[in-house]
C-alpha cells in the first residue's frame, strides 16, 4: 500500500505539471481526491490492514493528501494568475484616446470680472445694492448735483424716455436710493448695466456695465478711499499692483480723482498696452459731495463718505487682452468658450 500511495503521489505530481486549464486541474482533483478518486479508494482499503500498519499508512495517506492538496492549490494559483495575466494583456486600451467629458458651459468674461469684484468687496464688508435701469432724471442727475442745465448732461449723452425719465448713465442713482433709505454706516457696491448714446465701435458701446462703491459713515477720509482702492487693485490685478490718483472733476464728489493702476502687462515700465505710460486709468473716485449727502438727508457736518466707480468692459478687456469691445456682445460661442 505504501508503494501504491507513493506512486499516486508521483503520478499526480507529474500530471499536474502538464496542465493548462482550471478544468484539467479539476479533473485531476476528482481523479485523485474525489469520492471515487484513487487516493480515496486506497484509503477505503485501509480496513484490511493490521493494527500496527494502520497508523503508519494512515499517516502516509494524510501526508499524500495534504501534499496533493497543496500542489493542487499552488497549481490553481499559478493558473489563475496566468489566466489573469493573459486577460490583462488582451485588454490593453489606447490611453491616448480622449476622455469622456461632459462639456461645461462658460461664464461670460464680464460676469467673471463682475463676480471677482463682488467677492473682493463682500470680503471687505460690502453689500450688493441694485436699482432700476430705467431711472428718474432726479436720481440719475439732480440728486447727484447735476441740475437740468449742467454741461455734464451733454457730455454724458443720455438716452431719454421722456423729460423726467432716462436710461441711467451711471449706477450712482442706486447710491442715492440707498442713502435715502438707509442710515449710515453704509457700505455698498452697485454693479449694473448703464447706457450712453455712443455709437458702437471697438472701444464704445451704448450699453455697458459699471460697478460703483459707496461708503458713508462718521470720519470716513480720503485716506480710507485710497487704502480701499489699493486693496481692490491688488486683488484684481495682482499683489504688485500700484495705484495713482490724479485730481479730476465729477459733480458728485469733491475732492475727485481719476485712478490709474500700474500696467498689468509691463508692471509700470511702459509698453504698448499702456501706451508707454506705465499706468492705465480704470477708476473714477472721490469724497461724496456734501450737496449729494444733503440731497439724501445725510448731514455732511456729521458724516462723510467716499465713492468710486469703474467700467467693467474696460477692466475685462484689459484682463483678457480683448482688443474689440464688440466681441463682448456678439456672443460668438468660439469667443465665449475661451474664458
Amino acid at each position: 500500500m505504501k508503494e501504491q500511495l507513493n506512486s499516486i503521489k508521483d503520478q499526480a505530481e507529474k500530471e499536474l505539471s502538464g496542465i493548462t486549464s482550471i478544468q484539467e486541474l479539476e479533473n485531476i482533483r476528482v481523479k485523485y481526491l474525489g469520492k471515487k478518486g484513487e487516493l480515496t479508494s486506497v484509503l477505503r482499503g485501509m480496513g484490511a490492514l493490521s493494527a500496527e500498519e494502520r497508523p503508519i499508512i494512515g499517516q502516509l495517506a494524510n501526508e499524500v493528501r495534504s501534499f496533493l492538496e497543496e500542489k493542487l492549490e499552488a497549481a490553481k494559483n499559478e493558473l489563475v494568475s496566468k489566466e489573469r495575466t493573459a486577460r490583462l494583456e488582451k485588454e490593453v486600451i489606447d490611453v491616448t484616446i480622449p476622455g469622456k467629458v461632459k462639456a461645461l458651459g462658460k461664464k461670460h468674461p464680464l460676469s467673471i470680472v463682475l463676480d471677482e469684484i463682488k467677492d473682493v468687496f463682500i470680503g471687505m464688508g460690502y453689500e450688493i445694492a441694485e436699482g432700476p435701469e430705467v431711472e428718474l432724471d432726479y436720481y440719475n442727475f439732480e440728486a447727484l448735483n447735476i441740475p437740468k442745465n449742467h454741461p455734464a448732461r451733454d457730455v454724458q449723452d443720455t438716452f431719454y424716455i421722456n423729460e423726467n425719465m432716462v436710461l441711467r448713465t451711471q449706477t450712482s442713482p442706486v447710491q442715492v436710493r440707498v442713502m435715502e433709505q438707509k442710515k449710515p454706516p453704509i457700505k455698498i457696491i452697485c454693479p449694473g448695466r448703464v447706457y450712453r448714446s455712443d455709437a458702437v465701435d471697438a472701444t464704445h458701446s451704448p450699453v455697458f456695465h459699471q460697478v460703483e462703491g459707496l461708503v458713508v459713515d462718521k470720519g470716513v477720509t480720503m485716506g480710507d478711499l485710497i487704502g480701499t482702492l489699493q486693496v481692490f487693485a491688488k486683488s484684481l490685478f495682482g499683489e504688485n499692483t500700484k495705484i495713482r490718483l490724479r485730481p479730476h472733476h465729477f459733480p458728485f464728489t469733491e475732492p475727485s480723482a481719476e485712478v490709474d493702476v500700474s500696467c498689468w502687462t509691463c508692471g509700470g515700465n511702459g509698453c504698448r498696452v499702456c501706451k508707454g505710460e506705465g499706468w492705465i486709468e480704470i477708476l473714477g473716485a472721490g469724497m461724496v459731495h456734501p450737496k449729494v449727502l444733503e440731497n439724501c438727508g445725510i448731514d455732511p457736518e456729521v458724516y462723510s463718505g467716499f465713492a468710486f466707480g469703474l467700467g467693467v468692459e474696460r477692466t475685462a478687456m484689459g484682463r483678457f487682452n480683448i482688443d474689440d469691445l464688440r466681441l463682448l456682445y456678439e456672443n460668438d460661442i468660439r469667443f465665449l468658450k475661451q474664458f
Partner: peptide, 18 residues
C-alpha cells in the same frame, strides 16, 4: 493726492458683507 497716507476705514463701524 498720492502723499495722503492710505488707511482702511479702521475704527469705523463694521458691516457684514454678504
Amino acid at each position: 493726492y498720492n502723499n495722503i497716507e492710505s488707511t482702511l476705514l479702521s475704527g469705523k463701524s463694521s458691516t457684514l458683507g454678504k
